[in-house]
């Protein structure tokens, strides 16, 4: 199996004035292509820090990290930007869409920083990506005209548009109600079924159950790493919900 993420002894320290904060104290983590991993842990355990390092938004203090076979210690800031642009798709808790900008233009944004893609191509890819998350009829809507679930789907479409090797989602359902959360999780599951690698941070156990593997952090250490043999199906949960509504 091809390793998308290969981390060994990753340490992350933050300097806060005199004090050094040890956010990650030696993490070993391997994630293969096509996996769906949920990262859990108490607040402050280092989940977001780990995600930022995986996503090349932040540099690690110690350890080794190979992303898609590439040693990221050899890279500079512009290379980091290129990796974020081509290999990784981010989904955030707070959606992070550009305000007063249409869904289509939001989704198109990563392609504009990719010189290999022509402008009309970018348009078409963005529209296709929105179609994929079920928002084909909302391409001209601005974030303020969309519900939370729809906004998160636009964010997901944006994360997908560059055909990334990896989707990183930091508490994507944190701002959504439970039903919308399951809808978004269904989308993640569908994408995973198509072979896209997903790493997702969540606080909620029932959300983690939609993944295939669970990693638990505590005080910057990995304390649990298990395969979830019986994956919960978002589709089934949704249809039972449909039943209750009626």
């Amino acid at each position: 199996m091809k390793k998308v993420i290969d981390m060994r002894g990753v340490v992350k320290n933050y300097q806060m004035g005199e004090m050094e904060v040890h956010a990650l104290r030696g993490i070993d983590l391997e994630i293969n292509a096509g996996e769906f991993v949920a990262i859990m842990g108490a607040s402050g355990s280092g989940k977001s820090t780990l995600m930022n390092i995986i996503g090349c938004l932040d540099e690690l203090s110690e350890g080794e990290y190979y992303l898609d076979g590439e040693d990221i210690r050899d890279l500079d800031a512009d290379d980091f930007a290129a990796i974020r642009n081509r290999k990784i798709g981010f989904v955030f808790q707070s959606f992070n869409l550009l305000a007063r900008t249409s869904a289509l233009e939001n989704v198109e944004l990563p392609l504009l920083y990719n010189r290999q893609i022509k402008m009309h191509e970018a348009r078409a890819k963005a529209a296709a990506s929105l179609e994929l998350v079920g928002l084909g009829d909302r391409i001209d809507h601005e974030p303020s005209q969309l519900s939370g679930g729809q906004q998160q789907r636009v964010a997901l479409a944006r994360a997908l548009v560059n055909d990334p090797a990896l989707i990183l989602a930091d508490e994507p359902t944190g701002n959504l109600d439970s039903k919308t959360s399951v809808e978004v999780m269904k989308l993640f599951q569908d994408l995973n079924d198509k072979g896209i690698t997903i790493v997702l941070v969540t606080h909620e156990h029932d959300i983690a159950e939609y993944a295939r593997r669970k990693v638990v952090l505590k005080d910057g250490h990995k304390i649990e790493d298990v395969i979830l043999s019986k994956r919960r199906q978002a589709e089934t949960d949704l249809s039972s919900w449909q039943g209750e509504d009626e």
Binding site: G55, A77, D78, A81, R84, N85, L109, P110, Y113, N114
Partner: peptide
């Protein structure tokens, strides 16, 4: 600032 953060996260370089 937020917009800049978003652009950087999705792959804009500093010079962009």
């Amino acid at each position: 600032t937020r917009e800049i953060g978003i652009r950087l996260a999705i792959g804009a370089r500093g010079k962009d």
